[in-house]
């Protein structure tokens, strides 16, 4: 077990390094380096300014050398300096990651709370009316373009009903008297983006739970358990749901990984200062350091999460063992 985990960690690290190089290469394939962007913003930059700035940023070096400089800085714990915001990357990433983390975690929990019971109910009564309606909503959730949904939510709840704010993550300039007030205020801003982010995952999770549960309930041991005279509850949760959990864990682990890559469209629509938007503006503004750190963070998150889910399988299903 331990050797398995160690081997996987080493593999993961190698993949992260290779991927970071790929991302680095992709970023350089984009036309217009930072200096060119500066020139376009300012007609008075001269040819000397251009060469000076190129040298300043090390852009006159070949790709592999620049990558080497970057990765050796990273390994020293030096994440660099954001060229767009002109502050250290760590100071930029910290708050953005926290904001995104809060949004994604609440949205994930919210969708699981709704989707899992919904999926179980559907699986227990397949082809019933409840199943049909739940299915329709799940499919609609998966199929709705997220920014369209976001706009509709804003119009209804922020502009017309005025129940919730249209964007932001807290009432700006409000001095909180106590933590309870702060929580309430921030929660108010969280609801709309969370809902708009959750709609799709609710659809996905409930479909997934439904099919995993259907599969599990078809097994012989369910029949045995029922024959033994166990209560319906015990059969469903102890025998059925436990077995449906394995595939569910995979999909939850995968969606966990998006916790750090953020939800660009939702964040943009709701003016939520998360990491998705940060990545986007850093890519568009050719802010290498920020974009690369963000890439590495989100790639690592996925790889680590899939490692965790592999280990979790062993916990949930004793039949699986690692050599």
């Amino acid at each position: 077990m331990l050797t398995f985990i160690l081997r996987r960690i080493v593999q993961t690290l190698v993949v992260i390094v290779i991927l970071s190089y790929v991302c680095f290469g992709l970023m350089t394939l984009m036309p217009g380096d930072p200096v060119e962007l500066m020139i376009s913003a300012n007609p008075r930059i001269s040819a000397e300014d251009v060469t000076r700035l190129r040298e300043f940023y090390g852009l006159d070096q070949p790709l592999i050398k620049r990558y080497y400089t970057w990765i050796s800085d990273i390994s020293k714990g030096e994440l660099g300096y954001s060229r767009t915001y002109r502050i250290p990357v760590t100071e930029m990433m910290g708050p953005a990651l926290t904001a995104t983390f809060i949004l994604s975690i609440t949205s994930l929990l919210f969708s699981l709370i709704i989707a899992i019971p919904l999926g179980i109910v559907c699986a227990l009564k397949p082809n019933s009316k409840v199943d049909y309606i739940a299915n329709l909503f799940s499919f609609a959730g998966i199929s709705v373009p997220s920014f369209w949904l976001g706009i509709v939510l804003i119009i209804i709840f922020a502009v017309n009903l005025r129940w919730l704010p249209a964007g932001g993550y807290q009432t700006t300039g409000l001095a909180y008297e106590n933590i309870f007030q702060e929580l309430m205020d921030k929660a108010k801003y969280l609801i709309l983006p969370m809902v708009s982010l959750s709609v799709q995952s609710i659809g996905r999770f409930s479909r997934f739970t439904r099919s995993a549960m259907l599969e599990a309930m078809r097994n012989d041991y369910i029949r045995t358990a029922r024959a033994k005279g166990l209560s319906n509850r015990v059969v469903i949760f102890q025998h059925g749901f436990r077995n449906a959990l394995i595939p569910l864990i995979t999909i939850i682990a995968i969606s966990f990984s998006s916790i750090f890559s953020g939800a660009l469209i939702t964040e943009t629509l709701f003016a939520y200062p998360g990491v998705g938007r940060l990545i986007y503006s850093s890519i568009i503004g050719n802010d290498f350091n920020v974009a690369m750190v963000a890439f590495v963070v989100s790639v690592s998150a996925v790889l680590i999460m899939s490692l965790v889910s592999d280990i979790l399988y062993g916990v949930v299903d004793p039949r699986i063992s690692y050599k």
Binding site: A166, G167, L269, A271
Partner: peptide, 22 residues
């Protein structure tokens, strides 16, 4: 007494933010 400049990155939602008082 106080001025706050708030970033609304999507211009499509500017009007909604204005009308909802953000």
């Amino acid at each position: 007494k106080r001025i706050i400049v708030k970033l609304i990155p999507n211009s499509g939602t500017l009007e909604a933010n204005l009308r909802s008082g953000t």
